[in-house]
Design a protein around this nucleic acid. Structure first.
Lengths: 287, 287
DNA sequence: CTGCATCGATAACCTGGAGGCATGGTTGAA
DNA sequence: TTCAACCATGCCTCCAGGTTATCGATGCAG
């Protein structure tokens, strides 16, 4: 009746990520033949080939692509189940809030203050995540709530409420041709060098790779690129740089997000406190 | 790194459902000592007791309750991943539509006709599910789309579009005190006997248990109870029964639902066809 | 109070299959 | 041709997870 063990799914995901049995085996801390055999075993059990492999190349079949997509989610769900079970025993557990350093638009202290007045407030642990995996903290239960930016972060599998909407600005060195403009449009940025964000494959930038806002601002200061960001992420504006509003960029929203399956009052009251009396304090809608 | 194998999770769910190691072992087709050991193993690995057990009684701890809740979802996700992978290989695969017998409000033939004109239409397999588990067909990938009733079916983890909204009627024998009324309110039903739906624990009814609409209508005919249903579920009205609109019952909606993680064009075009030109034909929103 | 039936835990044993190591086969590049 | 990279195969070991038999606790009938 069991179709696929968690461990096997992890093996598959590793190979699907690396597209290389040797590297995947290292990442999994097992020997390569064991991995080859495991994948063949899985393929036999499912009755579908997952990879097309030659001795020079490994690639996913359509079935493999589907399994990668859904399998990731399944692994997250298992992790979340385990984490939730572990924590459910402890009614004193802290609330874990994940955010990007500086990614709170100045709202964090206010939110924490509001939350501290909730009758069932817990201590709050702030987690700073790596550049691109904040959302996974929420999906697999490593954090309870998080501050995310839409449309940068992928909200798949998460519920959210908008805290703050803001327009976006282009950041240029003060000597730049756009520095004097009152506003620009996206089309004005044609031909400019934009950053590639580290760990974000689908980016449209062509310039140097940057890992965070500070790095990006530095690169802009030395005229290696320009960048577009929500306004609050560049407050205060460093010397030598100028912000110009971009009128036709889709507005950016700072949202408070949590796992859509998580209905604990713990989360609901934090959300209520964060939204404040701006909105109803009832349990927020999810869908 | 692996926290919990799929098989172990299945074992746990079985015991959590049965609250009885012997019966759970039978259901899993293993011996009872193996199951006891497996559960102890899991508890040791998670570091949390999942059950409080004496030789006469088994019950869930809070951690166990959490694991049951999230673990179900995780198992569904694994099943869905496997099913999707198996089917992804076959571009000819039929579209599988799940519904309750008679639960289409007369819309099915129209929907199928509209879908057949879609450029990428596939053959459609109609699945009739048991009474209460239609939604699980969608969650674990046994079906692609389903016709559900809100607020009867649990839409957790599913995306949906409303096909049809209708008011609800109370069905009474023709001799009943309410049979002559043009309309009633919920408060008029005070003191009446309502059905308990088989497999639906949270029901408010106190009367005999019924498994489907036909059974319920029969019980009403013999004056054992009365019932409240969406109007289309009792068309045509059997002889000897009378339908009276209930003005203040929350309206019932027939919705077309699918797994929220399923973004295949296959599903999108069926949804588009079912909605017809009543709405935009773009990919429907999910959240 | 005393057997009895129920049910989970323990003990002792067995086995299939997962994983390790060594090696083979294929393929593209120099 | 030779080499290097890389996945597959064969063989062996070992233990996780299964089995049966039995024990110990607990509620119940008489």
């Amino acid at each position: 009746m069991v179709e696929l063990e968690t461990r096997e799914l992890e093996y598959f995901i590793a190979v699907a990520d690396e597209l290389h049995f040797g590297r995947a085996a290292v990442r999994l801390s097992i020997a390569q033949p064991a991995l080859s055999k495991a994948i063949r075993r899985i393929e036999a059990r499912l009755g579908v080939p997952l990879f097309v492999r030659s001795s020079r190349h490994v690639e996913l079949t359509p079935a493999g692509a589907a399994l990668r997509e859904h399998g990731r989610h399944a692994l997250n769900a298992v992790s979340a189940a385990v984490r939730n079970a572990r924590r459910a025993g402890d009614p004193q557990a802290h609330l874990r809030l994940v955010l990007k350093p500086g990614g709170d638009a100045g709202l964090l202290s206010g939110i924490l203050a509001a939350y501290s007045h909730e009758p069932d407030a817990r201590r709050v642990d702030i987690l700073f995540s790596g550049p691109a995996d904040r959302t996974d903290f929420l999906r697999d239960g490593r954090a309870d709530v998080g501050l995310l930016y839409v449309p940068f972060d992928d909200l798949d599998g998460l519920a959210h409420e908008t805290l703050h909407t803001e327009d976006r600005v282009v950041i240029v060195p003060s000597g730049h041709r756009l520095a004097g403009r009152a506003a620009v449009r996206m089309s004005d940025l044609e031909g400019e060098t934009l950053p590639r964000w580290k760990g974000v494959p689908g980016g449209d930038g062509t310039g140097p790779e940057v890992a965070d806002v500070v790095q990006m601002l530095h690169m802009i200061t030395v005229s290696r690129m320009i960048g577009v960001l929500p306004r609050s992420l560049v407050e205060p504006v460093p010397a030598g740089l100028v912000c110009v509003p971009v009128t036709d960029a889709p507005p950016s929203r700072l949202v408070l997000a949590w796992n859509e399956r998580d209905r604990r009052p713990l989360v609901a009251s934090f959300v209520a406190a964060a939204l404040g009396d701006r909105q109803r304090v009832a349990a927020p809608t999810q869908r």
